[in-house]
Design a protein around this nucleic acid. Structure first.
Lengths: 123, 123
DNA sequence: CAAAGTGTATTAATTGTATTAGTACACTTA
DNA sequence: TAAGTGTACTAATACAATTAATACACTTTG
């Protein structure tokens, strides 16, 4: 379910956050579904439990999961929270698009990228 | 010409790299134009000269500038180098687009972002 | 030639973050 | 009661970013 890429320069906890966020936003993890326990996932990924804890704390802070002492962590995913996080992703996309524009990349080339990613059929 | 954002979590040298790269890619800095000296820019930005040196080294490694001992740093900007860096930016854009897609963001919303950034006229 | 300005290299010290390790406590479930 | 859960805390380690202080080689200018 979760894979750590040690080539990736980003911190481990950030990778975990991003993976779970994607799974929650696209509905792969449904509301009230239980997440792996902090300790279990730590063992599975061969990393320290504190690192998992840090990731879960941030996910809770974003409203994507909720935690119950003694029971575990569960998917929250109220629709407005999903929308909010998707809007944040679009804001990051705008920033990247702005850089592309300022770097002299033409509209058509950006458009080709969007089609390339979003189209199922070959170009 | 260059501004440091201390709110930005990215390292200073990276911000400097990105700013100069944009100025070179879009042609604001023309080939063989001289860049501020390592020491002068350090004073202007109130940071250490080593940080500037690090940024210039990376820009040279990308082929965007060339340095001459005793004289200074100058814009290289061969057209193929420009194309190469633009392609790197598009690759980053693809990654971000993939995240958007996997996060359940619809094609139309992404398209709106692209139009919003690239259109001069109001939507 | 001498001075000033340039890039470059090196070492040391400081700071902040990521990660691991170990422990402890409160809670829930079987 | 025992096992499993979240949570909090401290300590130690490792690494990256940044600053600081030199030093050296080179070029330009007076």
């Amino acid at each position: 379910m979760i894979v750590i890429d040690y080539q990736d320069k980003r911190p481990i906890y950030e990778q975990i956050i991003d993976r779970f966020q994607i799974l929650i936003l696209n509905g792969a993890l449904e509301p009230d579904m239980q997440l792996p326990s902090v300790r279990a996932l730590a063992v599975e990924l061969s990393i320290n439990a504190n690192t998992i804890q840090r990731a879960y704390s941030e996910l809770e802070h974003r409203g994507l999961i909720y935690s119950v002492k003694g029971r575990g962590n569960f998917v929250s995913a109220q629709q407005d929270v999903v929308k909010e996080q998707q809007e944040k992703l679009l804001e990051e996309l705008r920033t990247q698009l702005q850089v592309c524009k300022e770097s002299g990349i033409e509209f058509i080339h950006v458009l080709d990228c969007v089609r390339e990613i979003y189209q199922e059929v070959k170009v």
